[in-house]
Amino acid sequence: MTDKNPNDLSDEELIIEFQRNNDVKTFEILVQRYKNPLTNYVYRFVGDYEACVDIVQETMIKVYRYKDSYNNVAKFSTWIYTIAGNLARTEYQRRKRRNIFSINSYGEDKNETFDIPDESYRPDVITDSGIKDKIIQDALLKISKVYREVVILRDIQEMSYEEIAEITGLNVGTVKSKINRGRAQLQKLLKDIYRE
């Protein structure tokens, strides 16, 4: 262990420390740093809070179990976002296949309730202030998942094109064009709220 305070270490230093000494404290710091950004990213992609929390937990478990498969060449954030993205895509496909919920009719059922012992912001519970959020989220779920992923990473997670390219495995040019196509689709879907 270095003399530095673990909280001052970079993500890469923390994961390497975790690999070398199996120090759970370093893993806990990484969880602390990434649980909210990943929850935000996965929720915007999947559109279901419970499923999203489960995916983020699964992502953390994968990091814990397969910590040795991380190599220092890549950024830790890229690695963890790739894991979360893969899991989110798999979950999305599974739900689509099983037809658990219809993307087009998502949110139409006003009686939809959730029971999670958490007082933090719940985007799927509609309040007056959250109506716009809800419309945008619905629009996000309506666009193709290929465009949705890159738009979320760029405009919500505010990542660079290079990072997005690394996470999605696409080249930078393709990433840029997909982002713009996704934005164009969103603009069509959201034209009504922009008129107001």
């Binding site: 990943l38 809070y49 937990q57 814990y64 912001y121 985007p123 405009d155």
Partner: peptide, 30 residues
């Protein structure tokens, strides 16, 4: 500039956070 409205809308979305019991559940699962 072309998609300014869309970008602003997406950026203005409220951040979704993990539940308070996230770490507890994670530790239990591990």
């Amino acid at each position: 500039l072309k998609y300014k409205d869309v970008i602003d809308s997406l950026k203005s979305l409220q951040k979704v956070n993990a539940p308070a019991n996230f770490e507890t559940n994670l530790t239990r699962r591990i």
